[in-house]
């Protein structure tokens, strides 16, 4: 079967060790996490994880069921096939001499990114969007020299009034 990226959304109890349990499960079942983002959600004492994992449908189905067995995992949903809003945030520190600075700012505008910090020979760009958009900006910025970069990994909600979570 064809391997592709799947987006899983997990609601987990906000307790110590939950991340270890989830990361450990991926490791011992032989799955690689492409990205994982965690934060609070609308429900008290629950955190929401967005996990991007590569695999064929059967493999991802298996890992979803294994995740769902963890006592601290309240629900897991594979939203890959749903119409979703998926975003990632990246902070990119670019070497910027005074000659290059205006060219960099143009690109930042085109991508609707922001410059969030300026130093004598660098700028820090903040961009939010799908992975493709971020990759594309990175390709353009790379020739100037990227000193440092931080990406959050994908976070996602499905479109429309419905919740992403199966209960």
């Amino acid at each position: 079967m064809e391997e592709k990226l799947h987006t899983l959304v997990a609601l987990v109890q906000d307790e110590p060790g939950v991340l270890t349990r989830i990361a450990g499960l991926f490791r011992r079942r032989g799955f690689n996490i492409e990205s994982l983002s965690v934060g609070h959600c609308e429900q008290h004492r629950l955190s929401r994880m967005t996990i991007v994992v590569k695999g064929d449908d059967a493999e991802v189905d298996q890992v979803t069921r294994q995740l769902d067995k963890l006592i601290n995992v309240v629900s897991v949903t594979d939203i890959t096939r749903c119409d979703m809003v998926a975003r990632e945030l990246a902070l990119i520190k670019v070497t910027a001499t005074s000659e290059d600075r205006s060219e960099i700012m143009q690109m930042v505008d085109i991508y609707r990114a922001k410059i969030v910090d300026v130093a004598p020979d660098s700028v820090t760009v903040e961009i939010t969007g799908g992975e493709d958009k971020i990759d594309s900006l990175l390709t353009l910025l790379r020739p100037f020299g990227i000193t440092e970069m931080a990406r959050t990994g994908r976070t996602a909600l499905i479109r429309g009034a419905k919740s992403s979570i199966n209960n």
Binding site: A58, D61, Q62, R65, Q66, D68, K69
Partner: peptide, 11 residues
Amino acid sequence: IDPAEIGKNVI
């Protein structure tokens, strides 16, 4: 009883 066993080894 364990949904994760369905299709794990034999489909």
